[in-house]
């Protein structure tokens, strides 16, 4: 999934990667392209994890893991970091999801359970401000429930914010008409994906002769 997302990121993009699968995208940059990674705690030009024993507690990413800074990187304070995000200066954000609705609503910060400690971090700022929002997620939950749904039941991170979804089964665009299938994983059928999706899927248009 991470490698598939990387193929769709234009050369020269400024990209913010969420925690989890999105972080893996940095390992799959296609040949001949350069992406600059932003981490909202104050670094543009985030590099890979440090070699064992060479990390620094004061050089971390938004997931609080130690990272490196590439040549040409810059450090800045939080208001500037969120000027980049909220001011529409970051090209792309790739996030995980609990649920995505067919109108692009995203829920990814809280299950809303009575015992949950609410924690939002920068997710609401990212979806409100970044130009394009990609979601990378397993198509269904561990219990088999669809994550792509008609309407989110979990609390929203933002309304109508998701542009494209990458799952283990398919690539799907969010369009005014609903979920538009763009690509299907090898060996998977339309019906198989539709059965595991909680809202109608628009089939891939057949190529016109």
């Amino acid at each position: 999934m991470a490698s598939r997302v990387a193929q769709d990121i234009p050369d020269g993009s400024y990209v913010n990667l969420g925690i989890g699968i999105p972080e893996l995208i940095a390992k799959f940059v296609p040949e001949g392209r350069e992406f600059i990674y932003h981490t909202e705690n104050g670094l543009l030009g985030m590099g890979p994890s440090p070699e064992p024993g060479e990390g620094e507690p004061e050089l971390i990413n938004a997931g609080k893991r130690q990272v490196t800074a590439i040549p040409g990187a810059s450090y800045f304070h939080h208001p500037d970091s969120f000027v980049m995000i909220r001011g529409g200066h970051i090209d792309l954000c790739v996030l995980g999801a609990l649920q995505v609705a067919q109108n692009g609503d995203l829920a990814n910060w809280s299950t809303g359970g009575p015992d949950a400690i609410p924690a939002v971090g920068g997710a609401m700022d990212l979806v409100a401000g970044v130009k394009s929002i990609f979601v990378v997620t397993q198509h269904c939950t561990k219990k088999g429930a669809p994550k792509l749904v008609e309407a989110c039941t979990f609390p929203l991170t933002g309304p109508a914010v998701v542009d494209r979804i990458y799952t283990d089964l398919a690539v799907i665009d969010v369009t005014p008409a609903g979920f538009q299938l763009v690509e299907i994983s090898p060996g998977v059928t339309f019906d198989y994906v539709q059965e595991r999706t909680g809202a109608p899927l628009l089939p891939i248009a057949s190529p016109t002769a």
Partner: peptide
């Protein structure tokens, strides 16, 4: 008081 990170900074 839970505040989105960018809102907190701003």
């Amino acid at each position: 008081e839970l505040v989105p990170q960018g809102t907190l900074a701003e």
